[in-house]
Every structure is written in C-alpha cells, then in structure tokens.
Design a protein around this nucleic acid. Structure first.
Lengths: 96, 96
DNA sequence: AGCATGGGCAAGTGCTCACTTGCCTGTCAA
DNA sequence: TTGACAGGCAAGTGAGCACTTGCCCATGCT
C-alpha cells in the first residue's frame, strides 16, 4: 500500500502517469520520446524503465508484452484508496 | 504540489495523519506518546517534529501556537488534488 | 528570581533512491 | 542467417532523506 505513495513521490513518475493518461498503451521508446518532446524529461531509457518498475509494483501501470513490443497501460484504481483513507470533510463541489 | 506526495511517501508521516484524524488538535508530546502506545512508532520528539515540518510544508498539517503549547491540526484538502489529477474511470461503488 | 517543561534549531551520520554505464536476450526484416 | 531494433539485467555512483545528538529559547509554576 505504501508503494503507491512512494511511486507518486517522484516528479518523473507523475509525468509518466500524465503521459500515459493522455495516450494509453504506449511502448517504452514512444514514452521516452514523448517525455523528452512534451515534458522536457531527459532521462535515459533505463531510468524510465526503472520508474516503470516502481509504478508496476504500486499497481499503477501494467506491462503487456506482445511480440517485440511491450505496451504500457495506466491503472488509477490504487489512487482511490488515498482519499478513502483520509476522507475530506467538505465535498469537492467548488465554492463560489 | 509535489510536496504533498513526498510528505505521504513516509509511513511514519502517514501514521501521524492517521493519529491526527482520530484526535485533532494534539500537542507534540501527546502525539509522540500516542505514536508509541498505539502505533508502535518509536521515533524521538525531534524526528516527529521534522516530520511535522514536512507535513506543514505540504499543507497537510497546521501548527497553532497558544502560550507554551503548540497544537497540531489536520487538513486533508490537498489530498483532493490527487484524484482530480488522474480521475478514475469507474466510480467507487464496490462490486458484489 | 529560579527551575522545570514544551518546543525549536543546527550539524552529523547511515541508508535509500534516482540515474548512469555496460552487457545480454529475444524479435523482426533483408 | 545476419544485422538492426525493442527491451531487460545487473553493478556502481552521487544526492537526498530519516534519524540522532546536542544546545538554545520561551512559557509557566513555586
């Protein structure tokens, strides 16, 4: 359970989640390219892969192998446990 | 914004939030005592205080000075930004 | 005034973590 | 079959973080 929080603690990993949410099912190379192009993240392929390991352990990302490619999929389900653990008093309805 | 995630990454800090949610407005000594008694957290006073610094920077805890005492208050508002950033597809209605 | 209590401030230490470097495996095209 | 491509598997390194130790300041009671 604490893996989810540790996974979200790194800004690069949060950017990966952002990118996968915008375009799900990317391959590792495509993800690396888009991280450089659109988010200015200059990490190497191995660094991104290690981030994906952490995200996979947290249950936030799943790898789907298909032939030569490995497609990455986002799963935001573990995030629900956060707001369920410390429920907010006032609802998300925005004030005036 | 990333401060919230870094604050939640540590298990001791999450326990502090749990304890403050159960009993809001504690003082530092009371919090330390209850962390030892009820959660088995054996950190020193300074360690807990440094955790409170992190939680305060993240906006999750506020310190209210009153005479010789400093009361600690929980604020779960920053947690809402998490589920708003990566909205879940299926609602929290649990399956069978 | 004088001392105990509640708490802050700062330096030092060990461990974790993000990132790099290098090499190795499996898949497709020519 | 051989080469290029997509990706994994380590080991090593530097920075950040959690925690401790020691000292200092303010408040309140006697």
């Amino acid at each position: 359970m604490g893996d989810v929080f540790k996974a979200l603690a790194d800004p690069t990993r949060r950017t990966i989640l952002d990118e996968l949410q915008e375009r799900d099912g990317q391959t590792l190379f495509e993800l690396c390219s888009r991280l450089v192009m659109r988010h200015g993240v200059g990490s190497t392929r191995q660094a991104v892969s290690q981030h994906l390991d952490v995200l996979e352990d947290a249950g936030l990302v799943s790898r789907r192998r298909e032939g030569r490619y490995t497609f990455l999929h986002l799963d935001t389900a573990p995030l629900r446990a956060i707001t369920e653990r410390w429920p907010t008093t006032d609802p998300p309805e925005g004030p005036p």
